[in-house]
Amino acid sequence: MSGFPHRHLLGIEALEPSDIQTILDTAASLKEILDRPIKKVPTLRGKTIVNLFYEASTRTRSSFEVAERVLSADSLSIATATSSATKGETLLDTVQNLEAMKPDMIILRHQSSGSPHFLARHVRPAIVNAGDGAHEHPTQALLDALTLREKKGRLKGLRVAIVGDILHSRVARSNLWLLSKMGADVVLCGPPTLLPPGIDALASVTHRIDEAVEGADAIMMLRIQRERMSGGYFSSTREFHIRFGLTEARAKRAKKDVVILHPGPMNRGVEIASEVADGPYSVILDQVTNGVAVRMAVLYLLLGGASEAES
């Protein structure tokens, strides 16, 4: 009979396994609404949510927007390319101005790690982290976990390979937190230049993809984040594909019922071959549907119930 003892969702790191369980169970139960003839429930009527995105996003933003609409919240989306941020307004000034319009929640994506935590200390609305720099992307890890749980029936004891650009990936960090908290066995794989130093203290690490995918229950491919790269992390995308790309032949080294995940957007022919992305083991589109369910669960748990969670 657990409620959800948090006011914000800033990252996976601060969550207890029971919190993760609550979010996943709630998401699994809310997912049914998406198959109804009328995909709308009145649960968050009268709640206002601001989607504040300082970075480009298709999936995450539209997924939050769909979740907000299904739950009947009022929402507005601000893409900073067309906002006052281009005139030099600081994050805190922007948010304090938005706060004056009395929203109940702010969904923030920002290029600086820790920005949602900073906001949570300074403003009243609930804050949901939709990706902060290379730090965390909690709803992505939750939707990956929901997908894995649906396909495998459990998280505990699964062998999960996370392959690619670990260094720049908030998805990898959130997933590493979540999967280890839930008892899965994570192996990270990428070129030495794209692995953060010291990460071997948190998970096993290999530089050979064949080794990483061997016997895996799930393979999570990460996008090469060229927009965050300033130096030469690898010689060419072609070489990266040859050494670290997931091809059909490599996928065959995993378990027979392996599932292959990618948070999107994909670089086809770089980190993942097209025949794998479109193949029978790919659950990439299930991830997108589950993304809506997980975000509905987060909105419901943070905004449903009494507004001041006093537990």
């Binding site: 959800f4 169970d25 709630t26 139960s29 748990l301 969670a309 006093e310």
Partner: peptide, 8 residues
């Protein structure tokens, strides 16, 4: 409070 648990 807290959120009622949903059973679907």
């Amino acid at each position: 409070a807290p959120n009622p648990v949903m059973k679907g």
